Computed example of a mutant assay.
Amino acid sequence: MELRHLITFRTIIDVGGFKKAAEQLGYAQSSITAHIKELEKELGYPLFDRLGKKVVLTQTGERFLPYALDIIRLYTESKEVIRQTDQPSGDLTIGVSESLLIYWLPNIITAFMHQYPEVHLTVKPIDYEDLADQLKQNEIDVALLVETNSWLSSELKIHKLTDEKLVLVHPPKKETTNMLVTEYTCSWRPIIEEYLTYHSQPTENKLELPSIEAIKKCVLLGLGKSMLPQFVVKEEIDQGKLHYEKTKFEDSIAIYAAHHKDKWVSANINALLELLP
C-alpha cells in the first residue's frame, strides 16, 4: 500500500472527482485512475461508485477512509518529528472564526510571521458544525474561535484564552424595532434567542444576516440592534457611533484555541499557543 495512493484517495474525496484530483496533484487523470485501481486490487473491494461524472464512496470506501487519513497523518507527523528543530518551521494551518479573523487575529498573525519566518502559515475558515472532523482530518491544525463560556468537547483539547463580553448594541438616538441576528451555526445564536424570549416586543422583527461584518454595518446604518462580541464593536462604541446596553448575558462568551485530543502538538503549534494572549 503506497502513500501516494492514499493521498490520491483522500484528494479525490476532498475535491470531488478524479479530474480535479489530477489537477491538484499534478498527475495525468490516467495516473489517478491507476492509483485507485491498484489500491482497490490490494484491498479486494471497490472504493468508489462511478455514477456518470460523479464519484461517491462505497461502504468499503467509507470504512477505509479514517484509516487512510490516520496513515497520512502519522506519516506527516513522523517527517515533522525527524526534521524538528528548536526553531519552528514548515506548515501550520489555522482555522479561525469570522469575527476573530477580521477584528482579533491580524496583529497576532503579524507578530507570529515576524517571530517565526520559517513557518508557512495558512488561515482557513472553521466550520462550527464540523469542527471536530476538520481537526481530526488535519484540514486544520489549530482552531481559534468564539464559544460560550461553558464550552466543552470530548474530542478536543481546549485552551481558554480570554473571557469576552457579548454586548447589545444599537445606533445612537435612533429607535429601532429590528433585531439583527447571526446564522444558527453561530456559537452565540442560542444566547440571542434566549434574550429575545424574555425581552422581545410584539412589534420587533428578527432579521438573520450571513456575517458579523454585515450585521455591524447594518446596525451602524440604523437598521436594527444586535448582540455582538465587544471586540467587534469596541472602536465604534468608543467613538460614539454605537451605544450599548448591559444585559445578563454579557459574560457568556470566551475566546478559545482548540486542537484534536490525539493531535501531536508540534513546535509550530506550541509557538502559536505561546504567542496567543
Rank of each mutant, 00 (worst) to 15 (best):
D70C: 13
A257Q: 04
A28F: 14
Y244N: 09
W188F: 08
T185L: 03
Q87F: 13
I126H: 04
E274M: 07
T85S: 12
Q239L: 14
E2R: 09
D133F: 14
I109V: 07
Q24H: 01
V119M: 11
I94V: 09
L180F: 08
D86H: 12
A271D: 03
D49P: 09
V265D: 01
L156Y: 00
L131Q: 08
L135Y: 04
K206Q: 09
K79F: 13
Q201K: 15
E213S: 12
L180K: 01
L25H: 13
I7C: 09
A132R: 06
P210M: 05
L180D: 04
E155R: 05
H259N: 00
D251K: 05
S211F: 06
E204Y: 07
L145S: 05
V167D: 02
D130N: 13
P125V: 08
I255H: 00
L272I: 10
C218Y: 08
R63Q: 13
E80T: 07
Q59K: 14
I192A: 02
A254R: 06
H170P: 05
G95E: 04
P125F: 06
K246D: 03
K124R: 12
P172L: 02
A34Y: 06
H170Q: 12
R73T: 10
A111F: 04
I102T: 01
H35K: 08
I36S: 00
L272T: 07
L152G: 11
K160E: 08
I255T: 03
G224W: 01
T177V: 06
P229G: 06
I109N: 04
K261N: 02
L65R: 10
Y75L: 10
I102V: 10
F48L: 04
I7T: 11
S89R: 15
K174D: 07
E193T: 15
Q59R: 13
I82H: 15
K37L: 11
S252A: 13
D91E: 15
R63V: 14
A258M: 05
V96C: 07
K173L: 12
K225S: 14
Y256R: 04
W264E: 12
L156T: 06
W188N: 00
D141Q: 05
P171V: 01
E77W: 15
L74T: 11
P190T: 06
G16D: 03
Q230E: 15
F231N: 02
P172D: 10
D163R: 09
T110Y: 12
Q115M: 05
H170R: 12
M1V: 11
M113H: 03
K173R: 10
T203R: 07
L166F: 01
T148F: 02
I72N: 07
L39C: 01
G44R: 06
A34M: 14
L221F: 05
N205P: 11
E236R: 04
Y116A: 09
E235L: 14
T177L: 15
Y128K: 12
Y128T: 08
L101P: 01
P88H: 05
H243W: 01
L105A: 05
D141N: 07
P202T: 11
K53A: 08
A111E: 00
G240C: 12
P46R: 08
E23M: 15
Y256E: 02
P46H: 02
A28C: 15
T182L: 00
A68R: 04
D251H: 14
K136G: 04
Q87Y: 13
D70W: 09
I109Y: 04
Q59G: 08
L100H: 00
I140S: 04
H120I: 13
